[in-house]
Amino acid sequence: MNLVRRLVGNAPPRILWSLGALLALLLIAPALLGKYWLSVLILILYFAYVGQAWNILMGFAGQLSLGHALYAGLGGYIAAGLYFHYGIGPWAGLFAAVAVAATAGAIVGYLGFRFSLAGVYFALLTIAFSEFTRVAFDHWAWAGGSGGLFLKVDATRDIVNLRGGPVLFYYVILALAVGAFILCRALLESRLGRYWLAIREDAEAAQAVGVPVLRCKMIAIVISAALTALAGVWNAFYYNNLFPETAFAMGRSIEITLAPIIGGLGTLFGPVVGAVVLTGLGEAFTDLSDALRISGIKQIFYGLALLVIVVYRPAGVWPWLADKLGLKERQP
């Protein structure tokens, strides 16, 4: 009860009702939507979820990671490998996946934060780790090496082993996205969350008022990595294949950062709004380039659209949208 009160806190009733209605809609969406729109919604939820996970580290604690594919990749590979080799289902495998990714996060974080790497230097470290891991997985036979790891495609629903069609994966990613949203709200409204914001704004001043800066940053990267690993597990079982070249790709890391950046760094709704905008644009431009029969035009338009958003809404779409709607996500 106390927790509920803290979560709901001083959120205006209007927002709570809207969120409730949205959630109800999302719950019945598979009955309303066709295959295509369901797959679009799945993508949106996926990016909202990983965006939320990344936003904890960057948006809250102010540490730029451009290597989050590392945690998604590790999570996916560990869970898929355990299932592939030993038949261990992902609900059990995810514990190993999360543990490995969280450890990787702790190592990256310790090296970066202990030696006070900040900004782009920390970002370079995260990229380096992701790249090393990609090379290692290229040569790791257990994980299938560069040839990849394939799970048997099987559309008969088997919830225990996370096998089934899009509807199953839809509900899992919905649960993750909603869970991450609630978790982030709870974190922001906690002492730890305030300490993160303080560190993001000025680490030296934060430390002077008693914030244990290194410990708080470590907690941020471990939570962020662990949540991202879950996205990786989901991803591996949804797509049924994993390649080092894609799982640990720089592009995958960048993709994770886009929704919160476009939507609004450090805000709760930013990653969600950003995921809607990005996926919407992506799909629209795919249709356009199909219609025009010019390949590659999608990437150009997509890039231009992002550029326009970043130039005209540098704080993200959500703060602007919230203003238009007469809402204000209370800037702490």
Partner: peptide
């Protein structure tokens, strides 16, 4: 060294959280 992006109240709240 204010926490620039936080409100005045939240700046001081960070101290009080100690």
């Amino acid at each position: 060294k204010p926490f620039r992006g936080l409100s005045v109240l939240e700046n001081v709240t960070v101290g009080a959280l100690h």
